[in-house]
Design a protein around this nucleic acid. Structure first.
Lengths: 119, 119
DNA sequence: TCAATATACAACCAATAGGTTGTAGAACAA
DNA sequence: TTGTTCTACAACCTATTGGTTGTATATTGA
């Protein structure tokens, strides 16, 4: 229990922040896949895919089991649910804000909120 | 799935992968805060906090509006919802897997799934 | 007017991320 | 046995991240 919750959460979102890793996770949620099988799909080396699997594994987003030579990966829905729960908590903060009427007050404000331009 | 959408998603999860940024986001969801006001809470320079705000802004997780000298940040629940939706889709893949009975077949397997040891 | 405040942004630096190639060993197939 | 497959991991390289300090500019208040 050396690792704090914050660091665990950091690792989960970091693991999710790469689209190759999200793709590996999607496939591992649908069924078991060996690393070499996964690696065949991407335009990068086996070692690179192996590292992506390792990042997902260390984040707890997937489990591994040995079957002969193969290391079979399987998505772990528990960890995904914990990330979803955290996002729901963030959303709830905003809803709380609506309840306190801050949102309605803000609607009277003539200034336009500034989102970054697409790049 | 478009490349640009992938990049936008990468940015959202990357922005969420730092606990200082998650804290800034929480506070910005509860109400508006100027950057200097936020910066006072953290053990780092104003410029560092400004960079964190910029990462959140570029990810679309918060909006900025000018009020005199101040740049007021406000959390954007829309972007959080889009991230939540993506995680829900991932969870759904796993539920789909249950429907296909893969999960029940896997339960017969004697080998124990391997999660990484805490470090 | 002038000092203080708030922000923006550039330049710099160490650590980490994401890729590569190479080496080694275990498990399988013939 | 021997060659092939699959994984693990080290060493290396470059780009990015997350922090710093310093400078410039706009706004406010006395």
């Amino acid at each position: 229990m050396t690792v704090t919750k914050d660091i665990r959460t950091d690792r989960i979102f970091h693991a999710l922040s790469d689209h190759t890793r999200r793709d590996i996770l999607r496939r591992s949620l649908e069924g078991e896949h060996s690393i070499s099988e996964l690696a065949a799909s991407y335009d990068m080396s086996f070692a690179a895919v192996q590292k992506h699997v390792s990042v997902l594994h260390k984040a707890g987003l997937l489990t591994k089991r040995r079957k002969g030579r193969k290391a079979l990966t399987r998505g772990n829905p528990e960890t995904i649910r914990s990330a979803t729960a955290l996002l729901k908590e963030l959303e709830a903060l905003w809803y709380g804000r609506v309840e306190r009427m801050d949102f309605l007050i803000a609607q009277d404000n003539p200034e336009t909120p500034n989102l970054p331009s697409e790049t």
